[in-house]
Nucleic acid binder design. Structure first.
Lengths: 274, 274
DNA sequence: GTTCCGCATGAATCGATAG
DNA sequence: ACTATCGATTCATGCGGAA
């Protein structure tokens, strides 16, 4: 049996072995980027990244339902003046593993990390790779429809966290539907480019994973009561968002501090929702 | 000798052989996309694309100056419900050929044409892959600076004491800043995400390659008098823009109709410039 | 309660210098 | 020669306290 609404402390490559086959509707995660969070994770060298990731993605392939989706938020770093190729190689290897590479969304980060270099500009986008087990999968496009016009800037990016909490408690059906309630029929489907600002104010976790990102994919690929898994949970963003949206969550986190933090946050959120 | 301001009729794989080594400052092109412009180009199947492209990129590597840059505007198509992997494979193979993969710019097409599919949204972005021969290349960043955001007006109006010195981040990210460095700035450097609307008006060429795209890269990677090459010239956009910007151009086009069209347009532009 | 304003923060990368 | 560490660079946001 798949445990519901649980987070685990450990390496997802190990923890996932206790999960049953075909039990998760959506995996959405942002794994540790190569060599970047050295102080908190082991710091995997770019050259070793694919070999490190593949056993874990094999487990993810096993636990995902045939109609489910895997969203992988990742970006290769620049090394010796070049973009490293490990993400490209990862896509090719995951296909050999049995995954279908359905789509690549662009997450455009408006307030990207500052800096100036002689040979490149600031990197203001990341990949959100969509993988599936089969060509037919669950997708609820109506749940992420947006007002005609500049959808992301005017709606998604501007909603503050308190706005979302208020809306959730009032309507209780997730934030995408609320938007459609307000604006009536002038709605269109979005594109594969997402405009979201990373949250820079989080003092507890160095990696910015804005709530709106998992929220958008949870709306798009799941319904209420479905199971969302984040095998690299970090400070718990995905689980918190899933819980608020009335989905079941499962999360795995290796780092003790993040695990504790996620536990605390989730307890807090669950109390709020009662 | 490299001919200046000339366009050639033929396959660039052949025509380029008459070009001398190390003679071009910037190559910017949008090659025929796999299998998409079948009626006009032969239609290379996605599975054959890499093998078709590599001999041509080998010639491009030869003719490019060591300080030069190659910008390849390309996007893989969706086939059987998946994104095809030929662009990823092409990047890996071009590196084996000797290219450095310096950067991947995202061209966000704001007015992407509408459409609805059961398993994906509209594709509103394309890759602009930057390749170089060596880690040191010519880049004129000042030429593409953009106006600073509105935030600066209020933020920089009054500086605190910490704003005037180098203030190191407390979280150990190693990032320090001196806010007073920004005062008096009107223009800032852009990021690696380009926001340009495709031009819809050109009925003569099936691929939309807006003038602003080659223009931006010509500004960034060349100075007046430099040589710009487009080995898949199409209706001549790159050559026309280069000419207007006082760069020398060379173009190659296989299709007779596009070749004639580009000739006519260029004659017209050159007359205007006199 | 609402708006305004000050301020810390961030999945970064390169080149130089040191071991 | 090859790796490790360190300093320099600089944009836009959301939060919290003040008005």
């Amino acid at each position: 049996m798949l445990p519901n609404d649980t987070i685990f402390h450990g390496d997802c490559g190990e923890v996932l072995k206790s999960f049953p086959d075909n039990s998760v509707d959506l995996i959405v995660t942002s794994p540790p980027y190569a060599d970047s969070r050295k102080s908190t994770y082991g710091g995997i060298h770019p050259d070793d990244y694919v070999a490190w990731f593949l056993p874990r993605s094999a487990e993810l392939l096993r636990v995902l339902k045939p109609t489910g989706t895997f969203i992988l938020n990742i970006k290769e770093k620049a090394l010796n003046g070049e973009r490293h190729t490990y993400v490209l190689e990862l896509i090719l290897e995951m296909r050999r593993q049995g995954w279908l590479w359905t789509e690549e969304f662009v997450w455009h980060k408006k307030n990207a990390y500052p800096g100036k270099w002689s040979n490149r500009f600031r990197d203001s986008w990341e990949r959100c790779l969509q993988f599936n087990k089969q060509r037919k999968f669950n997708m609820y496009q109506e749940a992420v429809m947006v007002p005609i016009g500049d959808w992301a800037k005017t709606r998604l990016a501007k909603l503050s966290e308190t706005d979302k909490i208020r809306d959730t408690s009032k309507v209780g059906s997730g934030f995408g539907k609320n938007v459609s309630n307000w604006t009536g029929r002038d709605m269109v489907y979005p594109t594969n480019v997402l405009h979201l600002a990373p949250e820079t104010g989080n003092r507890n976790h160095s990696a910015t994973f804005p709530k709106a990102l998992p929220e958008w994919f949870i709306n798009l690929f799941t319904q209420e009561g479905d199971v969302v898994l984040d095998p690299f949970l970090g400070s718990g963003t995905t689980a918190i968002v899933a819980k608020r949206m009335k989905r079941h969550y499962n999360g795995i986190e290796l780092n003790q501090n993040y695990y504790d933090l996620a536990q605390r946050e989730l307890t807090h959120v669950e109390r709020l929702l009662l």
